[in-house]
């Protein structure tokens, strides 16, 4: 019996590292992506490329690779879970298409439900967790009611001393600034529809979070040149 177990363990240090994953703190991050008709063409192509590169970037950091779980939700006329929470290294290639309306309210509510459920599961399994992130990208105004989504973001972000959610709203030209500002303290405006740099910033932010303590609120890196925070100094 002992010999069998020894053989299976071997001396593979990276594999041993994987075995410690249940005890590693995890960060649940939902990419909440607007795939309405207005994103068709170059924007959706850039978004697909950036999301796929994001996986590669994050996986370069060994700590992030062990600790980050990504889910992808898209919203257009409907809301669809493109990918359930998955270790970043197992994230599947995305090929989103754009059409329909902008059900932003429903999308946000689905993402909030997802991160709450996820952190409850981490707690049940004894896996420590960071405050979850929702990273929304949109280029338009909602075509549904966002009042309940707005209230839920405010509620989750104000629980306890440090909140239970970090919601980011990234606006691509064409976005409704007033809507995004009403949803979040963290609105990022992009100059164009090239998502490469903002996803690069997101991957670096994940790396910073993943080496912090779960109760910390670490300072994130500087936004890329083609992005600005609205209003400033709040990220």
């Amino acid at each position: 019996m002992l010999e069998l177990q020894q053989e299976r363990f071997g001396n593979d240090s990276s594999a041993k590292e994987e075995l410690s994953a249940p005890n590693e703190p995890h960060l649940a991050c939902v990419l909440l992506l607007d795939t309405s008709g207005s994103m068709a063409g170059a924007p959706i192509t850039s978004l697909n490329n950036a999301v796929n590169q994001f996986k590669e970037q994050v996986c370069k950091d060994p700590t992030s690779r062990k600790r980050i779980d990504i889910a992808i939700i898209e919203f257009n006329t409907d809301v669809k879970v493109v990918q359930e929470f998955t270790p970043i290294s197992k994230m599947e290639f995305v090929d989103l298409t754009a059409n329909g309306g902008t059900s932003m309210g429903k999308g946000i509510n689905a993402a909030i439900d997802k991160v709450i459920e996820r952190n409850q599961l981490y707690a049940k399994m004894g896996t420590p967790c960071y405050k979850p992130w929702i990273f929304m990208i949109t280029d338009g105004a909602p075509t549904d009611d966002i009042s309940s989504a707005r209230a839920r973001i405010a509620e989750r972000e104000s629980i306890g001393e440090v909140g239970k959610l970090k919601f980011w709203a990234v606006g691509v030209p064409g976005y409704d600034e007033d809507t995004l500002k009403s949803l979040s303290k963290r609105v990022i405006a992009l100059k164009g529809a090239d998502f490469t740099n903002i996803f690069d910033w997101l991957s670096k932010s994940m790396a910073i979070i993943s080496v912090s303590q779960v109760t910390d609120n670490p300072q994130l890196g500087k936004l890329p040149e083609d992005a600005r925070i609205i209003p400033p100094d709040l990220c």
Binding site: I116, N119, Q120, A123, C129, I159, G160, K164, T215
Partner: peptide, 8 residues
């Protein structure tokens, strides 16, 4: 003894 969602 931990708070809501076992985080605090």
């Amino acid at each position: 003894q931990k708070g809501l969602e076992k985080e605090t």
